[in-house]
Write a protein that binds this DNA or RNA. Structure first.
Lengths: 157, 157
DNA sequence: CTGATTGCAAATCGTTTGCACGTGC
DNA sequence: GCACGTGCAAACGATTTGCAATCAG
């Protein structure tokens, strides 16, 4: 699913209403690839409709969760729960320094069968998360390490 | 790292103290394979030392995080943050029904290189999470579906 | 003896809930 | 018109913080 119109259709089928607030929030969710928290969505909403309440953002995101159009992302002990707005299954790279969470498009072979422990389990989804440093942060890290070495050299004189 | 004694050694090196409370909490953490929340650790602590405060449990877990002896586990929107007390890298199976999180021992080839997006990233860890139904829950689910079918048959009469 | 640790209470922060008012359909 | 939606304020639950008393090294 993609467009606001398509979601609107789903809402109608459930007897739910399409208010201007919802339209905006759904639009923002559908076009956001940054896995925003509720707070982040809320701030974007305010840019266009300054009167919308946090409650409405929470409500709408909950509806989207129920519709299955948005998914919770594994919390990385940050501000709050992040949401993933892509319907397509995909994997994640998380930068442990700047805390960015980006989608990674790689094919993961269904690896589950190789484990005997999982023999009787029903596997619905497999989600890979890579932890590391994004290009910008790995550069910064390298610079910091150089600085530290210099400091040590000075203090040991 | 494994034993309480080894952790105690690490603490001493950092100028930290080994109180009876800490000894107990660390012992519980090291022997727990269920990815407990703070609350669950706290309850276990109370069984032995009923006077320990939640604050101390929080503090000690924080220290263990700093030492790298315990890791936060991706939140699955439950009671609270869960902790992983195994030093060894491994993967997880999460039952979406009973919310159990169990370790899975399977070898995942370092799949990161296959993506060009990750070319300049430093990958520190890769963590696979499988979502599905554990044997017990998939059985329950099957039974429920049967029940529903019967109900539908009755109501459509 | 001294700085780290404990444990209490209060504060914080994300999220949920209760409810009167407003509005799509 | 009526059910659903909105937005306010209050409630909640997990976690953090401030601080005085206590204790390990």
């Amino acid at each position: 699913m993609r467009s606001v119109e398509q979601i609107a259709e789903l809402l109608r089928k459930k007897g739910l209403k399409l208010t201007p607030q919802r339209r905006l929030i759904i639009d923002i969710l559908l076009h956001d690839r940054t896995h925003p928290t509720v707070e982040e969505v809320y701030k974007k909403v305010l840019e266009t409709m300054p009167e919308v309440s946090r409650t409405t953002v929470y409500n709408t995101i909950r509806e989207m969760l129920n519709l299955g159009e948005v998914a919770e992302v594994q919390d990385l002990s940050d501000g709050g729960i992040r949401y993933d707005t892509t319907g397509e299954p995909h994997h994640h790279f998380f930068c442990v320094r700047c805390r960015a969470l980006v989608d990674v498009d790689l094919a993961l072979p269904p690896v589950a069968e190789s484990s005997s422990e999982l023999a009787d389990c029903v596997i619905l989804k497999q989600q890979l998360t890579l932890y590391g440093l994004c290009p910008a942060c790995s550069e910064l890290q390298r610079q910091e390490e150089k600085m530290e070495q210099k400091e040590e050299a000075v203090s040991s004189r």
